[in-house]
């Protein structure tokens, strides 16, 4: 397995991550190839009939009662945002 430049750009697009002009562009292809070769070792394991394990603990989910526990903290939370107006978070215009 080896990543082409296009494959990396496709992944970077899915992850909305610019990898160009950020100083770490050159080595990324090499690094990813080395990592993927390393993780490829798992394909050799015989896992026939083995259940995938998503979680270390074999327990069940605890639920929450349907109660309102949160108060309006809008001013505190909006203060964390880079750009807001009229109680809204602002992003460059979303085009349909």
């Amino acid at each position: 397995m080896s990543f082409s430049r296009e494959a990396i750009l496709h992944l970077a697009h899915l992850a909305r991550l610019s990898v160009e002009n950020t100083g770490d562009d050159d080595s990324i292809q090499d690094d990813l190839n080395r990592i993927v070769t390393m993780v490829g070792q798992i394909s050799a394991a015989n896992t026939e009939g083995i259940e995938p394990m998503a979680h270390p603990l074999d327990t069940i989910q605890r639920l929450r009662l349907d109660i309102i526990t949160e108060t309006n903290e809008r001013e505190i939370l909006l203060a964390l945002a880079p750009k807001t107006a009229a109680g809204l978070f602002l992003v460059p215009t979303v085009i349909e």
Binding site: L17, S18, T22, I28, L32
Partner: peptide
Amino acid sequence: RGEGFGPEVKRRIL
């Protein structure tokens, strides 16, 4: 994201 994350984080995200 490209400017905010360092190279190791980016590698792992990819």
